[in-house]
Design a protein around this nucleic acid. Structure first.
Length: 446
RNA sequence: GACCCUUUCGUCUAUCGGUUAGGACACCGCCCUUUCACGGCAGUAAGACGGGUUCGACUCCCGUAGGGGUCGCCA
């Protein structure tokens, strides 16, 4: 009955991939996979000035990182190429000529090619926004003048987005256009263009935009806006995809952590939302922590080391153990560096609040000195023996172990939070612990 | 200015006329851990406002207000 589904993601190479664009790509990909369709990647590089190989690479890399494989497009080819608009000039010219021949387009006095807007009532059945009826004769510009005929080609010969976008969707047999809601009111013009070209418009679905937490539009500088940053910061791509799925789409049940394989069968219009979503970086981080926690130690260690690269402030023979020790403590990989500093940098600064809490009782100083003395005489240096030692020190002093453990943590790490303390002490080794303890005890109470 | 979309806890959302309005992030408390977390348990927190329709509206309709978007020889 209906034609095989063909959808596309058509980014403009601006030098980076925006999360909004990534989410649009993801939804198109999900729709294609759900319906056994074809996912096309088309590069809209008509603006020659901004188009660079690096800018294209940022998009392709981002797509690959997310796992969004395209069935047709750059590097994979396809029967509807070329997939760079900069290489499709002849196709655009052909259709422009048709429009001129049929009286739908004309060259204005400045040399630009313009589309004679039909200005007729138009009805569009958007799969997300519902039926929208527009009286195109009432469209006007900011000055209250009737909307001017749309430019198709600049006087300098450059093609305009609206035209090439429509022509390519037509030529490439795109059946469903899934794009950001910012294009919703461009759609009447696109439909008019399809009709002028004697073609049936595709099915449209305009998905809600992603905004900053304060409701403003996300720009490159906003936290979380640039997809490449997630790779740089060692995020688990599956976690980012998971998070993006939850922005404007819902499984309609209580699930939060979902793989794309679980999402695909549920990806239909009914599961899409129609209101804009604000970008909650904290929840993205939490999802990342869920994916990290689910990994076994081998996989996590490999991931961490691959991301860290050369690590100079951690002894090579302690790196793996340190990573495993910190695995349950972090939400994303950059936190490893902070913990490494706390653990292995004797000169790291002491956090003020932790210091205040640790030094609240003056007798704690003697307590730490007692702990150090007992540590010095330990026969074996393990987390278990260290724990027993602290307990014995506390008993001898007539205090609870808890009275010593927190100050000990602060004395060793300079922070009130961090890795499991006893395993951390074991990892650091007696020499380092005793030296740190002596120096920091003096520093804390000095 | 014209037109369009949108409005449930701070955030993402469930609810498709009858619910103590549910879940998750964040926050707070308790338990566990004689440290830090994880985990477990509980808590604070929402239907923008005003009219209708209806026996009954978060849910349907209208209006107002807020938010977002489009109206380019940008994409």
């Amino acid at each position: 009955m209906s034609k095989p589904v063909r959808v596309r993601f058509a980014p403009s190479p601006t030098g980076y991939l925006h999360v909004g664009g990534a989410r649009t790509a993801l939804f198109n990909w999900l729709f294609a996979r759900r319906n056994g369709g074809t996912f096309v990647l088309r590069v809209e590089d008509t603006d020659a000035a901004r188009n660079t190989p690096e800018a294209v690479a940022a998009i392709l890399d981002g797509m690959r990182w997310l796992g969004l494989d395209w069935d047709e497009g750059p590097e994979v080819g396809g029967e509807y190429g070329p997939y760079y608009q900069s290489e499709r000039g002849a196709i655009y010219q052909k259709h422009a000529d048709r429009l001129v021949a049929s009286g739908h387009a004309y060259t204005d006095e400045s040399g630009a090619l313009r589309f004679r807007l039909p200005r007729l009532p138009i009805v569009m059945d958007d799969q997300v926004c519902g039926r929208i009826e527009i009286d195109r004769s009432r469209a006007q510009n900011r000055d209250g003048e009737p909307e001017a005929d749309m430019t198709l080609r600049r006087a300098d010969g450059g093609w305009i987005f609206h035209f090439v976008n429509v022509v390519d969707d037509l030529e490439m047999g795109i059946t469903h256009v899934i794009r950001g809601e910012d294009h919703l009111m461009n759609t009447p013009k696109h439909i008019e263009l399809f009709q002028a070209l004697g073609a049936e418009p595709p099915v449209y679905a305009h998905i809600p935009l992603i905004l900053n937490m304060d409701g403003s539009k996300m720009s490159k500088r906003d936290q979380g806006a640039e997809l490449g940053r997630y790779a740089q910061e060692g995020f688990v791509p599956e976690a980012v995809v998971n998070f993006l799925c939850l922005l404007g789409w819902s499984p309609k049940d209580d699930r939060q952590v979902m793989s794309v394989q679980e999402v695909i069968p549920l990806f239909d219009w009914d599961h899409l939302n129609r209101s804009a979503a604000k970008f909650d970086y904290e929840k993205c981080l939490w999802l990342n922590s869920q994916y990290l926690a689910a990994e076994n130690t081998e996989a996590f260690t490999a991931r961490a080391k691959a991301w860290l690269g050369p690590v100079e402030n951690v002894p090579a023979d302690k790196l793996d153990a340190a990573i495993v020790l910190l695995k349950p403590k972090i939400k994303h990989l950059p936190e490893l560096r902070e913990h490494f500093s706390m653990l292995f940098d004797a000169a790291a600064s002491v956090e003020a609040e932790a210091r205040a809490k640790a030094t609240a009782k003056p007798e704690t100083k003697a307590g730490l000195e007692r702990v150090a003395g007992d540590f010095a005489t330990l026969e074996v240096w393990t987390a278990e023996s260290l724990k027993a030692s602290v307990e014995s020190s506390a008993k001898a002093l007539g205090v609870k172990p808890g009275a010593l453990l927190f100050p000990l943590r602060v004395a060793i790490t300079g922070q009130g939070h961090g890795a499991d303390l006893m395993p951390a002490l074991e990892l650091l080794g007696r020499e380092a612990v005793l030296a740190r303890l002596a120096a920091r005890t003096a520093q804390l109470f000095g």
